[in-house]
Design a protein around this nucleic acid. Structure first.
Length: 288
DNA sequence: ATGAATACCTGAGAGC
DNA sequence: TGCTCTCAGGTATTCA
């Protein structure tokens, strides 16, 4: 599923293939893809058609295209299974049941948004300072030049939530999903339920650094498999699988100590950890 | 205000 | 073969 490294790979592909192009036509083929647009598909199509793409942007798992000739910005979230593709031919995907939006570009190519599980969306949005309105509630990610680990760490240490919930919330640090949360916690040797306010400052720094490191490595791996003919983008691709130490490795030996990795239920999701390297925290003493 | 549970969605795979 | 069931999970929304 697309987390920060995958979304950044998509952004780079769009930067290469779409910036400078003028959108000559837009067609929404599934209304759910524009469910966040107050005026629906008609508004989305009207506001995007005719604009020229001038730049790309990203924060966490949100990405956007800035448009000239309008004060709007085209924001996208890939959800679970969203993909962008650029096709040199104007036609060719007529029988693809997962295409949700098509943009015709002025060089004859077609930009396509595909999304099997329809958790993704696109939006013609306004600006809220440095990011679009729909992204204003999302914290900076570790690749943001203005990301401040010390400030982020202090916020984490004010929360009573478990560290994995904190990592997934997108309001402390953004870009981390279930896979990289498990990987970061494995690297830092932290149990997912360890409360933020019971972590020492140094430990919080370690887990933030681990999240940054694992996403940097994943981005590098994504870059090597990048196919310039398309905007590389298979949300379910397993190109980083071989480097995962915890996620999906239940029953296999921990790469550090050899104990079998366990999978546990976590908010109706799965969580993977080493039972020896990532011990549960002592329960919080009751007050009163 | 804070934190946590829930709804949303579809294809793959398992079990029978 | 075909049916039913489970599972995957990011985030907006709802609830406590």
């Amino acid at each position: 599923m697309p987390e920060l490294p995958e979304v950044e790979t998509v952004r780079r592909g769009l930067q290469e293939r779409v910036v400078g192009r003028t959108i000559t036509a837009v067609a929404v083929t599934h209304p759910r893809a524009v469910r966040r647009q107050a005026g629906g598909a008609a508004q989305f199509e009207a506001e995007v058609a005719g604009a020229t793409v001038t730049a790309t942007g990203r924060r966490g798992k949100y990405l956007w295209l800035t448009l000239s000739g309008t004060d709007r910005v085209l924001v996208a979230h890939l959800g679970m299974s969203g993909q962008f593709r650029v096709q040199d031919e104007a036609a060719g995907d007529d029988d693809d049941p997962h295409v949700r939006v098509r943009w015709s570009l002025d060089d004859g190519s077609t930009l396509v948004f595909r999304d099997q599980r329809t958790f993704g969306w696109v939006l013609s949005d306004g600006w809220a300072g440095e990011v679009p309105d729909s992204v204003s509630h999302i914290a900076r990610d570790p690749f943001d030049p203005r990301f401040d680990p010390a400030t982020t760490g202090r916020a984490i240490r004010r929360s009573r939530s478990g560290i994995k919930r904190i990592l997934l919330a997108q309001t402390y640090v953004s870009g981390v999903g279930n896979i990289y949360a498990d990987e970061a916690l494995w690297r830092a040797g932290l149990h997912p339920e360890h409360p933020g306010d019971r972590l020492r400052s140094q430990r919080v720094g370690q887990v933030l650094a681990a999240a940054t490191d694992v996403m940097t490595a994943a981005l590098a791996a994504g870059g090597t498999s990048f196919d310039p003919l398309y905007v590389a983008v298979n949300g379910e691709s397993g190109w980083f699988d071989r480097q995962l130490e915890a996620y999906g490795r239940q029953g296999q030996p921990c790469g550090r100590c050899g104990a079998p990795i366990v999978r546990e239920q976590f908010t109706n999701r799965s969580s993977h950890r080493c039972p020896r390297c990532q011990r549960p925290p002592r329960s919080r003493p009751r007050s009163g």
